[in-house]
């Protein structure tokens, strides 16, 4: 089932160092990492970043398979980027391959390689964050980090709550989609053949029940939340208090160090 392969937002419970870091630290580290990723200009910088990620995956124990699986939905984007860079990067000197209108330069290969690496590292580290941080903690952390925006009267709590509920219901709705699809197929519905218009029309028997069910669920959930005394963010406490520990400061320092190291690597003219 293709639908079940989507791993977006899936959390692998665990007790590793990476799991135990404060979620805010992890979000900040992700930001550092991305900044460093966009600073990197040569093999040394990318090497440092790749090594860091490998180390982080090893520490997290989620396994490389899971991280690679996250890559599946963006596979085409990666290939597309690679091909574009390969073909359209102008280079100096003789092209390595010249065939018809296609000219591939050494620079093209280099850029394509680094671009692919950059996208893969970017996606991997983002997935690593969602794999090692429960969605609720993640939203808590976002809510906290975005606390500044609250002062601008933005409904930060409400947004965070919406996000966590959306994450909670993704698997449920995927399962439901599968079920309705099977039920309509049993009545002879055909989702796979025909032209675009046909296929769009064929989706009506799937989408109508899905929407109705989503609204019913939303309705019931709202009542259930009220019954559990939900009345907005005011006066709410949290079971898990976000508290920076020693390891968080060290991790943040290391994150900064990584940025500096990558920046320095640019000064060395390696490759």
């Amino acid at each position: 089932m293709a639908l079940k392969d989507i791993t977006l937002g899936q959390y692998f419970p665990g007790k590793t160092l990476l799991h135990r870091l404060d979620p805010r630290t992890k979000i900040l580290l992700l930001v550092f990492y991305i900044v460093a990723l966009f600073m990197a200009k040569n093999a040394l910088g990318y090497g440092l970043l790749a090594l860091t990620l490998v180390g982080a995956v090893l520490v997290s124990r989620v396994g490389f398979k899971a991280v690679l699986r996250g890559m599946k939905p963006v596979f085409f984007i990666v290939v597309f980027t690679a091909v574009l860079n390969l073909l359209y990067t102008p280079g100096q000197g003789e092209p390595l391959i010249a065939f018809w209108v296609i000219k591939i330069y050494w620079e093209g290969i280099r850029t394509a390689f680094f671009m692919v690496l950059r996208i893969m590292l970017l996606i991997s580290c983002t997935f690593l964050l969602t794999y090692t941080t429960s969605p609720i903690l993640l939203t808590d952390a976002l809510e906290d980090l975005l606390g500044l925006l609250k002062k601008l009267r933005l409904p930060v709590h409400e947004l965070a709550m919406m996000m966590s509920i959306a994450l909670r219901f993704i698997p449920t709705l995927i399962e439901e989609t599968d079920k309705i699809m099977s039920a309509q197929k049993a009545r002879g519905a055909d989702f796979e053949t025909g032209n675009l218009l046909h296929r769009a029309q064929a989706l009506i028997p799937l989408l109508v029940p899905l929407f109705i069910s989503a609204f019913r669920r939303a309705d019931e959930l709202a009542v259930a939340m009220e019954c559990r005394c939900y009345h907005g963010g005011e006066g709410r406490t949290r079971m898990r208090q976000l508290k920076y520990a020693g390891r968080d400061y060290i991790a943040l320092l290391l994150g900064l160090a990584l940025c500096v190291a990558v920046w320095c690597s640019n000064l060395l003219g390696v490759f």
């Binding site: 609720i136 966590s164 019931e220 079971m239 898990r240």
Partner: peptide, 14 residues
Amino acid sequence: NQIVANVVEEDCAF
């Protein structure tokens, strides 16, 4: 339709 959170104990804490 009455479980709010993605982790059992966090739902329980709601």
